[in-house]
Every structure is written in C-alpha cells, then in structure tokens.
C-alpha cells in the first residue's frame, strides 16, 4: 500500500513539473518526487512485524526477523542529495529573478534566447 502511495507521490511530482512554468514550483515538485522515491526505498526494506535492526541486549540472535537495514542507509544519502539539489536550485532561482525579474520560464524563453 505504502509503495502505491509513494509511486503516486512520484506521479504527482512529475505532473507538477509538466504543468508549471514557475521555477520555484518546479523545485517544489522535484522535492515531491524525491520524497516519493525515498518513501518507496524505505518501504522496500519492510518486514511484517520486523524488529529494528539494532543488536541490543534482548534482541541479539540472528533468528529474530530484522527489518532490512540497507534501504534505510541508502535513503539517508538520497535525502542528502535531494537537499543539495534543492539548495542549488533555489540559489539559481534567486539569481534568475535578480537577472530577469520573473520566475516564469516562458517569459524568459521569449527574450533573446541565445
């Protein structure tokens, strides 16, 4: 169920990118997409009534069904990368605004494009 929801989020993000001209809205929809994928990654490692994969005193035998730790590690990096791209995007958006005075790519495209 979670997987379907996360893929839905991805679709929304994609639709957001398709429909908007505004740069800020684009960056927001990229974040939605990133969010969708991250949730999907985490949902991959889910084991029904699994246990957090940390060896503590009571949970130390390899029999207990641990939740798969790898996707969680991956999702951390992916979140960081998503953050990086958003920060970069916003910085460029600000410079764009300073230079062209608008966020709307369609208007900017009209000016001398080269």
């Amino acid at each position: 169920m979670i997987r379907v929801a996360s893929l839905l989020l991805l679709m929304i993000g994609l639709y957001g990118l398709l429909s908007t001209r505004n740069v800020i809205k684009m960056i927001i929809s990229i974040n939605i997409m990133e969010l969708g994928v991250n949730i999907f990654i985490v949902s991959i490692g889910f084991v029904t009534n699994g246990v957090a994969p940390i060896l503590t005193s009571q949970v130390n035998s390899s029999l207990s069904n641990f939740v798969d730790p790898l996707p969680q590690a991956l999702v951390l990096t992916s979140i960081v990368i998503g953050l990086g791209i958003t920060a970069l995007g916003l910085a460029f958006a600000r410079k764009l605004y300073k230079k062209y005075g608008t966020y709307d790519l369609a208007k900017i495209g009209g000016m001398k494009d080269e």
């Binding site: 994609l14 990118l17 398709l18 429909s19 908007t20 001209r21 684009m26 790519l105 369609a106 900017i108 495209g109 494009d113």
Partner: peptide, 13 residues
Amino acid sequence: SSSKPAITIFWII
C-alpha cells in the same frame, strides 16, 4: 531541445 524542461520530461514519459 527547447529551453523549457517540461518538453523533455514529456518526452521521458
């Protein structure tokens, strides 16, 4: 290749 990303994303889909 046009300056708006929407077209390329449309093509990806």
